[in-house]
Amino acid sequence: MSLAVRLALTLSQAALLAAVAPLVNGFIKVLKARFQRRVGPPLTQGYRDLAKLLVKENLHAAPTSALFRLAPAVSLTSAVLASATFPCVAFGGWAASGDVLTALYVLALGRFFTALAGLDAASAFGGLGSSRDVSIAALAEPVAVVAVLVLAAGVGGPPDGAVLAGVHGTVFTSWRLLAAIAFFLVVLAECARVPVDNPATHLELTMVHEAMLLEYSGREFAASTLAAQVKQTVLLALLAAVFLPDGLGASGDPGALALSAAAFAAKLFGLAALVAVVESSVAKLRLFRVPDFLGAAAGLAILAYVAREAL
């Protein structure tokens, strides 16, 4: 594939992932509503909310600085950039620079600025959100890294597109499943999902991620919200494409490409459904039980490595 084609593939993947992010989030919301025997909002509600926010004015609390205006742009940029660092559908021809570990570091940049913005308005709620968010992230990050390491170890290559090439064609192994489960638990924590955080809460004291965005409104709030949704989609896509690459076409011809795109979409929404199931069946943990939850995830990741070494 020529550089232009690869570049086009990379950019269209980033654009597509960003575009479907509100849909994925809406899908989880609808499923959750069905579990609660409600009809729920339409699937497109996420887009309508964003459209409404885009025509509203930005409100800036008096204590805030220039960083407060910068943070939404940085967090959305980091989420979109992260979505371009690994291939979701085709492999062997990737223009973007980076690998899965880079994706995690790029996402951390967005979190850094969001956490700073949470503290900028001198509100105790924002500080509470930032403090809890970085604490949870500090425990989630190592688990994600170990899970990626297991994957790379299993196929004997760097944790990037080559991993896909390596995993493709291998039989489904126990270590891959264990690593995928560990990473799924990390996704729940990173995306502020039950049992770590409750995205539907309206009580400031129980918020984590939402508390950081409490002072935002208008376009900036739209950007921050979209950033969180894109990040969620990117992490689910990472899980679908890199941890569970089954169903990917091996060649770059259009037929195989279409097939693997369909398989990827099915896995993405399947994982989103799993998030909804977990969210509907598990209670939120107390903040200081979260280390136990992420400790279990870390245990699974280590177990995956042991399984990979033993098998």
Binding site: E57, L59, H60, E215, G218, R219
Partner: peptide, 14 residues
């Protein structure tokens, strides 16, 4: 783009 075309309103912190 986030700051364009609209004047931000200054408020107090919640």
């Amino acid at each position: 783009w986030l700051g364009r075309g609209m004047k931000a309103r200054a408020t107090g912190t919640w």
